[in-house]
Amino acid sequence: MNIFRLAADMTHLISILVLLLKIHATRSCRGISLKTQDLYALVFLFRYLDLFTRYISLYNTVMKLVFLGTSFSIIYFMRFHRVVRNTYDKEQDTFRSIFIVVPCAVLALLINQERSVLEILWTFSIYLEAVAILPQLVLLQRTQNIDNLTGNYVFLLGTYRGLYILNWIYRYLTEPHYRQWIVWLSGVLQTGLYVDFFYYYFLAWRNNQKLSLP
């Protein structure tokens, strides 16, 4: 475990806590894409199937359980909570998830490192995570007056991915056999999707204005 990896995981954790805080404190999920949240739950579910087959470390196990638990509780709030579910922008959250789920599934079947069910599901989760933010970014573009917590949530998610790239560079340099092209390419693509958002996030911050995407 290096400092970049730890910082990345903590940033990821904080992003989820910020989202939960927004939902609890404001009793609203306005501006949050349920489609992206569904996709993340799917990502965690398929990636962490090895919870049952392999023990890596206590840290690893606890974090996996936390990510699974929090992602499903966010979905629970958005779908079923008496107050919160009414604040969901269903009409604006129109991205068709099927257009990313199917290509990712096909890609995972074609490009993987081992022909086993667990490995193909794991690879699918890597591809899917790379593009799972798209419905959220589309919804943000349609949202007038993006609130601070929503903006910071997406910013932290992007930062988490960027830190993972630093972690990979560090591991590549320090661990002789560390090679993972599928993960690296997906991760770089995923971080790239945030570039536009980061630009407007910093612009709003510098000018002391409310964030909005053109």
Binding site: D50, S57, Y164, P176, Q180, V183
Partner: peptide, 10 residues
């Protein structure tokens, strides 16, 4: 084993 390394990541 290197191929499996990232499986210790989240």
């Amino acid at each position: 084993e290197g191929e499996k390394a990232s499986k210790d990541e989240l």
